[in-house]
Write a protein that binds this DNA or RNA. Structure first.
Lengths: 116, 116
DNA sequence: ATTAAACATCGATGCCTGTCAATGTTTATG
DNA sequence: CATAAACATTGACAGGCATCGATGTTTAAT
């Protein structure tokens, strides 16, 4: 179910006019819907929030599994969706995989919705 | 599949702290995800956009079915989802059902995402 | 080299959801 | 009243997706 070929959030924000001035194009609607879909899940919203709220604004999978009350494989899956969608980035140090917010990614999506 | 018991978007915006300051609560994550899910569909994004961009900022189902290239029942379904989620409101004049944007609804969701 | 820990990936499963055709409902009109 | 137009609702179906257990992979430590 890997989220595929997403337009970078920044480009998405740059290319389309305010949504309510003229009808959004089919392709832009599809891109934006993919970006929103990646965020439209309780577990993933909590993950983004938990990562951002965590010490040093980064967290490894083991920090997130217990509070989320989901299996490790499920958490890994959600993190992958968020990375593919451009909301999170990951880095490896030793055995640990650290995740952090991509700066401005949330604002980009928000900007697309707020411009009425 | 009716989107059920949604917290009004305005209240939702008022009740929860910026998503990155402290982890969002489970219930708030569920509410926000329902609001986002309602928007995370190409057809529904186009509907919102088409309604807002339409003359007098309102449109009836017959205005929307052809451009969307979806069946009338499918369009009705999507409109219901958007109304239930608080993005659109409908009014009846004669045989026609007119839909318009709920003012500020998009901004409310955007505000929830932008507060990083 | 073994073992263990931290994740990722895979396969399976059950629910969710977008779509349509068919039908029901309401309103206007002849 | 009968008919037609505009929508809503229903039932069915297929594809999508969240979830899990099991297994694979990489790294560190003994």
């Amino acid at each position: 179910m890997p989220v595929a070929e997403l337009i970078p959030l920044r480009d998405l924000a740059a290319c389309c006019a305010p949504i309510t001035r003229e009808p959004v194009s089919v392709t832009n609607a599809e891109s934006l819907s993919r970006s929103l879909k990646a965020l439209a899940d309780p577990a993933r919203l909590r993950l983004v929030s938990m990562v951002a709220a965590h010490e040093d604004a980064e967290a490894c999978v083991c920090d997130l599994t217990d509070p989320l009350e989901l299996s490790q494989s499920t958490v890994s899956h959600h993190l992958k969706v968020l990375v593919d969608a451009g909301y999170l980035m990951s880095s490896k140090r030793g055995t640990w995989h650290y995740y952090r917010l991509v700066p401005g990614s949330l604002d980009s999506v928000a900007a697309l919705l707020a411009t009425v």
